[in-house]
Amino acid sequence: MRRLMQFGLAMLAAAMGLPANAEEPGPRATLERAIAAHGGEVWLTPTTLALSGEAVFYDRETGAVRSRAEDYRMWRAFDPDRASAHEASGKVRIVAKSGERVLFEIGYDGETTWTERGIMPKAQADEYWANNFGFGVVRQALGEGFTLHRAPSRDILGRETRLVRIADPEGAETLFGFDKESGFITYLAFDTPRGFHERLYADFVKLPGGWVQAREVTLLYDGIKSNTVLWTETSVDEPLDEALFTPPSG
């Protein structure tokens, strides 16, 4: 009976055009495919990234729209030796504006974190970045000290998604989801001081240089949507003025 069942399963797999012993690819192969899908070397080792678009922020208690940033911008200067998944690295600045009004602004120059209100104390800054930094570690994940583990696949945004846990050299884990058909990264998740953080990536576009960018990013904490960003402009490896990251004086 057991051999008959095995034969039946093999016949079913053949009818579906699949090998009888089809297996999911390993985590390294899944990640390598994603790197190629997103643009290869240009995506793997960028020096700078500038994004602009708009964002909507939601009230956690009521679900209503709390604010809209019609002008939402982010600049990144990357650290090629990044080894920590959820600590600040490189340099970053984010500005959210509604009309001429600044909703919030935050920057990091490689040492100091600052906002539109001034310098942020280090302990507070470390917690802030731990709530937000996580995606970039995928670019170092094939390097020494990182480990990859496959997790069970699942549907995300209605599409079959392969999941890989990436652990940095300190053991901090980040869960990445890769669309089975395209190889694109469509999901990210990790524990933060604020709660369990998830991101959903959609609406991918390929730039002339080969870089593939998700134009829609939704952020959730403990399953509740926090904000959605719609990127309309992307610039890769263009020079950035160091003054962008300099803390305000006074």
Score class of each variant (00 low, 15 high):
Val95Leu: 14
Leu4Lys: 13
Asp81Trp: 00
Thr246Asn: 07
Glu238Met: 12
Ala243Asn: 15
Leu4Trp: 05
Thr113Tyr: 05
Ile156Glu: 14
Met11Ser: 04
Tyr72Lys: 00
Gly171Leu: 07
Thr113His: 04
Arg165Cys: 04
Ala36Ile: 06
Arg28Phe: 13
Ser84Ala: 03
Asp109His: 06
Val138Ile: 11
Asp179Tyr: 10
Arg165Thr: 15
Glu87Asp: 06
Met74Pro: 08
Pro19Cys: 09
Pro248Ala: 13
Lys97Gly: 03
Ala20Pro: 15
Gly63Ala: 08
Asp79Gln: 03
Leu220Val: 04
Pro193Asn: 10
Phe146His: 03
Leu4Asn: 09
Val236Arg: 14
Ala36Leu: 15
Ala123Gln: 11
Ser52Phe: 00
Gly53Pro: 06
Ala77His: 12
Phe104Gly: 10
Tyr58His: 07
Val102Met: 09
Leu200Cys: 11
Ala130Gly: 09
Thr62Asp: 00
Arg73Thr: 02
Leu219Phe: 10
Gly63His: 01
Thr174Gln: 09
Phe57Tyr: 01
Thr112Met: 01
Arg60Asp: 14
Pro239His: 09
Ser182Tyr: 10
Ile224Ala: 11
Lys180His: 12
Asp79Cys: 00
Gly145Thr: 06
Gly40Thr: 13
Thr218Cys: 08
Phe190Asn: 10
Asp126Tyr: 00
Arg139Leu: 04
Phe7Cys: 07
Tyr221Lys: 15
Ile166Arg: 08
Val56Thr: 01
Met11Tyr: 03
Met11Gln: 10
Gln124Asp: 09
Val56Tyr: 06
Glu111His: 08
Met120Gln: 13
Thr228Asn: 01
Asp237Gly: 14
Gly177Ala: 07
Phe176Tyr: 11
Pro247Asn: 05
Arg68Leu: 10
Asn131Phe: 02
Pro248Ser: 09
Gly17Cys: 14
Ala172Tyr: 07
Glu116Tyr: 03
